[in-house]
Amino acid sequence: MVAMGTARHGHATVVLECHDHCKESEYGAVEVVTLKHSYPLKVLVPEHTGNPKCKWIFPIVFGGGLVGGDNVEIIIETKPNTCGLLTSQESTKVYHCEDDLLTTQKMNYIIGDNSLLCVLPDYCVCYKDANFLQTQNVQMTESGNIILLDWMTCGRSALKEQWLFKSYKNSIQIDVGSNTVYKDSIHIHDVPGLKMKSSMKNYQVPNIDWECYFYAPAVGESVKTDVICTVSTLQKGGMSGLYLRFLAINTAQAYTVIKEIVDPLLPLLGADPFQNKYG
């Protein structure tokens, strides 16, 4: 039994490899060659999920979420010509932190030649007084591909718990070889005289970062204010990508944008990881 507040350190590693001889531009039949996890983390990799060329990976945490002071670290590696999907069964809950405790989650994605990693988790929700630090580092080769979704909500809005977490720090960095091609860091918290709650207006799902490398879906301009979507192209050292963010009043509105990106991927993924979740 682990009491609330007791620090837990969980590690997980998943390595995907392709064993058949496929063309350079294709994904081969994928196999899990390494699967390690330690308490409180557990990683599920179902045998059959639609497409044998795409492996679905579900990390889960005992206790239904990250307890104050938890430190978890996950490494996902896709070897050449493999395709993987990192997703979740439900939202990532970050529970309150007592005193100066900090909850951390570190994700490392290592992406080989001609491989694709789709990171399509459910949103992250920070409870009142949560103190959360998330770092996501991507190490990829020039012919690697990543689609990374990162989204959060204001908290448990049904309990009127909106923007009451202590601090939410999130940093995403993409390195190609030894060059950093992308870095996005935010630190949402109250500063003297300025409340994060008022800065968010009535938006509950802000700061959704998508980094899609080598992937360019058609996204129309949005003039509605229930969901505001922005797109920037990224060009660095021969790599090209798309940086898409949106701000939505609820998860259903956010999903209208997510759906546009995920739909064209469905034949590759074999099924929709968000099916029946957000309408």
Partner: peptide, 19 residues
């Protein structure tokens, strides 16, 4: 290395300028 955005909404909304 510690440079970060504290109020992402204004940054995001600036990103929507070309819309």
């Amino acid at each position: 290395e510690e440079a970060c955005i504290v109020f992402p909404v204004i940054d995001l909304i600036q990103n929507a300028h070309d819309n």
